[in-house]
Nucleic acid binder design. Structure first.
Lengths: 194, 194
DNA sequence: ACAAAGCACGTTAGTGTTCACTAACTTAAA
DNA sequence: TTTAAGTTAGTGAACACTAACGTGCTTTGT
C-alpha cells in the first residue's frame, strides 16, 4: 500500500492533534480545519477516521522496523547497539512528534480492535529487535546471562516508555534525548556482565 | 470528603466499564444501566461524570499511600521492601480490578485537566514511596550507589507499568502476580550492590 | 487535432446517533 | 414537612459520515 502526499499530510495533522490534546481531540471537524479544507474532503483520501489511524500505525511500524534494522547493521557491539536503538527512537520522535500518539495512546483505543492490534504490532517490532540484541549480548558475554532476555527486554522497554510519558506529562519541560541517553545508559550498565 | 456506599458502588461500576472496554465505553447511559437505575439518578450522587473519575483517583491515591506506608513500616530491609511494595500493588489490582483504569488510562484523559492531574498525583505517591526506599537502600549499601535513585526508581516503575500493560494486552492470559514477582525480583537484583 | 468522457478533489447542506446533562414529578422514610 | 433517591421525558451540542453537486485536469476515441 503506497501512501499519497495528501494522505501523509492528513496523517501528520491527525497525529499533531492527538499528540497536542489527546485522542478525544481528534475529530473530523478539527482535522479538516487544520488541513484547511472541509470535512467531507477527508473522505476523498481515507474511507474512515479509523483508517487514518491504522494507516499511521502500520506506516510507523514499517519505518521503525527499517530504522532498527539499519542500527543493527551499523552497530555490532550489543551494548552500544541497545543504546543506539533508543537514541534512534528519541531522534525519531523529536523529528516526528505527531507519532508520539502511538506511545501514549495505549488504553485509549480499546474500543477499536484494529487500532489495538496496530499498537500491539508496533510494540512487537521494537521488542523483536531489542530481544535479539540482548540475546546476542548474553551470548557474547556482554550482558548478564543469569536473567532471561525477555525480562531484561521488558525492563528496558518499560523504562523507555515511562521516560517518554514523564517527558510528556511534564509538558516537555526537559531535554528528552539528553536525559534519555543517560537513563538508557544506566539500564545498559545494570544489565552488563561485570 | 467521605464517600457514601452508593457512591462507592458507582465508582466501582465506572471502573469496571473502563477496565473492560476502555474510557470511551464509560458513558452515563451504560453506567446507569449497570447500576440498575436510570441515567439522571447518577446525578443524585455525583454532580458530573468528571467528578466520578476525580473522586476515584483521589480515593485511590489515598488508599495507595496508606498501603505503601504500611509496607514501609512492616518491612525494614530495602530490597525486600521494594519487592513487597510491588507485591502489594499486584494484590491490590487483582482484588480491585476496577482501579486498573488509573494505570492504563494515561493519555486518554488529556482533554480533562482535572483527570490528568489526578493521574499525575497518583504516580507521584508511588514514586515518593519507592524513591525513599531506594535511597534508604543506597545509604545502607544494599543498592548500587553509583546511579541516581531517581533513575533507578524510574526503571522500577517503568518495568512495573509495562508488565501491567502487557498483562492487559494479552487478555490477562498469564498470572500477573507470579510473573510480576519474578520480574520485580530481577529488577531488585540488578540494582543490588554486589 | 480535439471534443467527450472520466476522474481526482474539492464544495454546501444535511443525515441519524450518541453524548452529558436538566426539568419536573413521585415516593417513602426521617 | 423536609429530604434523599428515584422516575419519565426531553434538551442542545457534537459526533462520524453521506448525498449531490462543481470544476478543472487527463485520458481516450475518432
Amino acid at each position: 500500500m503506497d501512501i499519497k502526499p495528501r494522505q501523509l499530510e492528513i496523517m501528520e495533522a491527525a497525529g499533531q492533534l492527538m499528540t497536542e490534546s489527546g485522542y478525544a481531540a481528534l475529530t473530523t471537524k478539527r482535522l479538516a480545519e487544520r488541513m484547511g479544507f472541509s470535512e467531507p474532503a477527508l473522505y476523498r483520501h481515507f474511507k474512515s477516521k479509523e483508517e487514518i489511524l491504522t494507516t499511521m500505525l502500520t506506516h510507523l511500524a514499517q519505518s521503525m522496523d527499517e530504522r532498527l534494522t539499519a542500527v543493527s547493521e551499523q552497530v555490532s557491539d550489543p551494548a552500544e547497539r541497545v543504546e543506539a536503538m533508543f537514541e534512534s527512537h528519541f531522534s525519531f520522535f523529536i523529528e516526528n512528534p505527531h507519532y508520539l500518539m502511538a506511545i501514549f495512546a495505549t488504553g485509549v483505543l480499546d474500543q477499536t480492535p484494529a487500532l489495538e492490534r496496530g499498537i500491539v504490532a508496533l510494540m512487537e517490532v521494537k521488542r523483536r529487535h531489542l530481544i535479539a540484541t540482548i540475546k546476542d549480548g548474553q551470548a557474547k558475554g556482554v550482558f548478564k546471562a543469569a536473567f532471561p532476555a525477555e525480562l531484561l527486554t521488558l525492563i528496558a522497554m518499560g523504562t523507555f516508555r515511562l521516560h517518554m510519558l514523564r517527558w510528556r506529562m511534564s509538558g516537555r519541560s526537559f531535554d528528552l534525548k539528553k536525559k534519555g541517553r543517560i537513563l538508557m545508559k544506566v539500564v545498559v550498565e545494570l544489565i552488563r556482565a561485570k
